[in-house]
Design a protein around this nucleic acid. Structure first.
Lengths: 340, 340
DNA sequence: CTGAAAGCGCTTACAG
DNA sequence: CTGAAAGCGCTTACAG
């Protein structure tokens, strides 16, 4: 490994000077700057990041915590984050933990170990994050929370407008004449799922639809659970005329279940989802859903982190950004006009 | 930030002693070990990773390079890698670059900057990686290559048995009576796609099927391209009786195209894919495909890295591991018996 | 068993 | 404009 003193020796200057040209300091004579620059090139010298980190207390790396599940969902977000961050010369250190306790330990290690400059957290099933936020706040590194509601002072929280979009979906179904709309929940602990459910509940109230408990069933965001939930729902009495699945994967399972039950979608049963994953356009019938701009979400997270990185901790504000979502009308809801 | 000397001061010992208890050195008296341990706990002390890295020349982080595309595919692999690595106290630094040149620069920075201890690369469209491998070999960090064939001495290469599985799929279709099997290619530069194509070509030769060029069309691994490719194929004369798509997303697009063309799958047209993504079981009809164990792939990559990390560079061997794949028979091929 | 000291590879105030 | 020196937070041979 070539070090700064190798360069210094070869260029017959001090390491301080090499350091200065490395950092584009203006107080270095052009002639020596060029000479040293040559040697740096020649030796293919890259400064040691650990030494830099130790000195500057900045590592140019952002920690990224994400849950173990829903790989697809998070992958897209990560790509969005990564693209923006790497353009700005920052790296991503990822970690995916199973439970909260492990998560707290990881974060604590990252932050107190000086491994990261900022943190982006996606943990939709967060519960009590007081204990989690404390080390972060104390250490004053910027934090972005994606899809979880935690009281986090001076952090940026990025939220999808699940609630209004879900309500709007109920509205749409109601407009199509449905009175008995079932909901397949994504999981009691998932933030997005809970918000979508809340929108559903308020929507059916607002549009004066049936409100019985038999219209609700809990899945876990997988196709299999959507399938099973639909079988269950259709055995109940009275049957729903429409099913609103909290995500597309479950909606896909629901469509398959309808097929097995010999029900026509949307004639016998309307089915709608949420997320607009790439195959939603290729189900039969095409799935009516809500588009979630995952990469953009990632991009926004990266932007926020970068902005706060260059800010004095005392100047950082508590931001909550709610991203409006677009309904995508296809055939599975029975609507005449498609939006795509 | 609390440092080792804060601990030392409070425990009334030298930093050397604190360091020793931190590293479980045996030459420290139990009494002092316990006392220092208490203080460490009390102060919630975590050693600074940059200082550690500078000293030990180990960062306990593994670099992970992956392409910009196919988020789903890679996300699962990453989860597999991460699970195993994090259990062994290692982190993952990710980077996804757009072109090779950028990739080489990134890798060079990671390695020469002392940022990583090992590297896992997924770049299915790698071409010439001589220039890329050189800094790695010189720096003697272990390397795992996933799904790309590069001549990389002392590296571990993890490959899917695309070739044989594709051939087997052709065999299966041939057994079902198909003579004219079309292939939707995944992209000229993608390793997996090329291997699957090779298996297809050799398979149709081996089973004496039609070999005309009109049976081939190039997609790009998306549903949309599978859809479009199928429309194209079915306009040709003579039409294929079966379509083998190089991945499931394209097969899903193909099924949709068949539907639009009012063709029954599998009666008028058999369709098979590759990957066995989670929704493949929920297409109509269920998609016959080849299961790719993504998490296992990730796990194997992590294992290899970890093994080589603890090995003298001179002892490292060049390994090529080919993972056999399992065919998954569902309805879309027209077979009577399903395997799942 | 424990401490003083040197060193890992950088940066930066200080002096010149 | 440039260099000597101290320091970032650790580890580890060396001496005791």
């Amino acid at each position: 490994m070539t070090t700064i003193s190798d360069v210094a020796k070869k260029a017959k200057v001090s390491t301080a000077t090499v350091s200065r040209v490395l950092n584009n300091s203006d107080k270095v004579r052009p002639a020596t700057r060029d000479r040293v620059g040559e040697i740096i090139k020649e030796l293919n010298f890259v400064p040691n990041v650990n030494a830099l980190g130790l000195q500057r207390k900045k590592t140019k790396t952002i920690g990224l915590i994400f849950p173990d599940a829903s790989a697809y969902y998070f992958a897209e977000i990560i790509q969005g984050i990564n693209r923006h961050l790497s353009q700005n010369d920052h790296q991503i250190l990822i970690s995916s933990a199973h439970d909260e306790e492990e998560e707290i330990k990881t974060i604590n290690g990252f932050v107190k170990g000086g491994r990261i400059d900022g943190l982006i957290m996606m943990m939709p099933s967060a519960s009590d994050y007081k204990g989690l936020m404390i080390p972060l706040i104390n250490n004053k590194i910027p934090v972005v929370l994606i899809a979880c509601e935690i009281d986090a002072p001076r952090a940026t929280t990025l939220l999808l407008d699940n609630y209004n979009s879900a309500k709007e979906m109920v509205h749409h179904l109601s407009d199509l004449g449905h009175k008995r709309i079932a909901f397949i929940h994504g999981g009691k602990h998932n933030y997005d799922a809970k918000e979508r459910y809340r929108g559903y509940v308020d929507g059916r109230k607002e549009f004066q639809l049936e409100e019985r408990e038999e219209l609700e069933v809990v899945g876990n965001f997988t196709e299999a659970s959507g399938y099973q939930s639909t079988i269950t729902l259709m055995q109940r009495n009275p049957r729903p005329t429409a099913i609103f699945a909290a995500n597309d994967a479950m909606a896909i399972g629901a469509i398959e279940a309808a097929r097995v039950l010999k029900l026509s979608v949307p004639l016998d049963l309307a089915i709608v989802g949420f997320d607009d994953i790439s195959s939603a356009a290729y189900t039969d019938p095409g799935l009516t859903t809500v588009h979630v701009p995952l990469r953009r979400l990632g991009h926004l997270a990266a932007e926020s982190i970068l902005k706060n990185l260059n800010m004095d901790p005392s100047e950082r504000t508590t931001e909550k950004i709610i991203i409006p979502l677009q309904q995508v009308i296809r055939k599975s809801c029975g609507s005449k006009q498609e939006s795509v």
